[in-house]
C-alpha cells in the first residue's frame, strides 16, 4: 500500500498548472483532494510520475449564482458544498447528495471537481450532475471551453476532459421552483459506493401532469447516465403509482449494466428500477 516514487509540485495558478502538465510528458496528474487518486496510487493501479497540486489555486474555489445556475468551483469540498447556503437554498438535492459521500474525512478533503473528473460511476455526484444538466467549465492550453455533462463521461474513469486541461468549475441548473428532488442510494455494504444511485427531479404543472423530469443514474452501469426514456415516459403523464412503475421499469434501458462480486447485471437492473420507482414516488406521490 505504498505508491511508486513521484515528483510533487504545487501550482500557483491555472496557467501554471496547465504549463506544468504540458511539461510533464504525460507523466503528470492533477492533485486536488486526492481522495480518488491517492488510493489508486497506493494500490499501484495508477503510477503518475508527477503530481501537480492545484489545491491552493484560489480561482478554483467559491460558489456563486448566475441566473438559474449555480457555479461551483472545482475545488469546493463536499463538506463546503452541503454547508453552503446558496446550494442548500437553491439545489437542496446537491447538498443532500454531498452529505452521503464517503465518510467525514472524505467529505472534508474530497472535491466536487475531482469527484466528477475521476468519472467513477459508483461515486454519488455523477447522477446528480446529469440530472442538473451540469456544464463543465474547462481551461486548457487553447483557452476556455464548456463541456456538457451529457458528453463528459466517456467510459469508466474516462472523460472528455483534455489531458492538459483543468476543470475549473461546474455549473448546475437550479431546478424550477415547483419541482421536488431526491437522491436515493443503495450503498455497497463494503465500500459504501453506490451500487445504484438515482437522482430524480420532477414537477407537476397546473394541469396536474408531469411537466418537468430529470433522472440521473450512477452506479448501475459502467458510466453514469441520464435515464431519458424514463423521463419521456413520464412527461405529460399524471403522477400515479402506475405511471411511475411503468416508467421506472425503463430505468436500466440506457446503460451498459455492469456486474461485480456483490451484484450481477440482472440484480442491478432490478435495483435501478426499484430505486427509480422509490425516488419518483417520494417526490411525485
Amino acid at each position: 500500500m505504498i505508491p511508486n516514487a513521484f515528483d510533487y509540485i504545487k501550482a500557483g495558478s491555472i496557467e501554471e498548472a496547465i504549463q506544468l502538465m504540458q511539461e510533464s510528458d504525460g507523466e503528470g496528474k492533477f492533485l486536488a483532494g486526492g481522495h480518488s487518486l491517492v488510493p489508486l496510487m497506493k494500490f499501484r493501479l495508477t503510477n503518475p510520475g508527477k503530481l501537480i497540486d492545484i489545491s491552493s489555486i484560489q480561482e478554483l474555489k467559491g460558489i456563486r449564482q448566475e441566473g438559474n445556475r449555480l457555479i461551483v468551483g472545482a475545488l469546493t469540498t463536499h463538506k463546503q458544498l452541503y454547508s453552503d447556503a446558496l446550494v442548500k437554498e437553491n439545489i437542496a438535492v446537491l447538498a443532500d447528495t454531498a452529505r452521503t459521500i464517503g465518510d467525514m474525512q472524505i467529505r472534508n478533503r474530497g472535491t466536487v471537481g475531482g469527484n466528477l473528473a475521476h468519472a467513477d460511476s459508483a461515486a454519488d455526484l455523477p447522477g446528480v450532475a446529469l440530472a442538473l444538466e451540469a456544464l463543465m467549465e474547462v481551461q486548457g492550453e487553447d483557452g476556455k471551453e464548456v463541456i456538457d455533462i451529457d458528453g463528459f463521461f466517456l467510459g469508466p474513469l474516462v472523460t472528455a476532459l483534455p489531458e492538459t486541461s483543468v476543470l475549473t468549475s461546474i455549473s448546475f441548473l437550479i431546478p424550477p421552483s415547483h419541482t421536488k428532488s431526491v437522491y436515493l442510494k443503495y450503498a455497497h455494504p463494503a465500500s459504501g459506493y453506490a451500487v445504484v444511485g438515482v437522482c430524480a427531479i420532477a414537477g407537476v404543472g397546473e394541469d396536474g401532469r408531469i411537466d418537468f423530469v430529470r433522472i440521473g443514474i450512477n452506479g448501475v452501469a459502467d458510466v453514469a447516465y441520464r435515464a431519458t426514456t424514463v423521463e419521456q415516459a413520464l412527461l405529460g403523464e399524471l403522477p400515479t403509482a402506475e405511471s411511475i412503475q411503468r416508467a421506472a421499469a425503463l430505468a436500466a434501458e440506457e446503460g451498459e449494466i455492469g456486474n461485480d462480486l456483490f451484484a450481477s447485471e440482472q440484480y442491478r437492473r432490478n435495483l435501478a428500477t426499484v430505486y427509480t420507482e422509490r425516488a419518483l414516488s417520494r417526490i411525485l406521490l
Binding site: H188, P189, A190, S191, Y193, D260, L261, F262
Partner: peptide, 20 residues
C-alpha cells in the same frame, strides 16, 4: 471469494464486507 484458479477476489475492504 476465490476465482476458480485461486485468485482471492474479495481481497480488500472494497469487496469484503466488514460489518459497520
Amino acid at each position: 471469494v476465490y476465482s476458480d484458479n485461486g485468485q482471492l477476489l474479495s481481497g480488500t475492504f472494497m469487496d469484503y464486507t466488514m460489518p459497520k
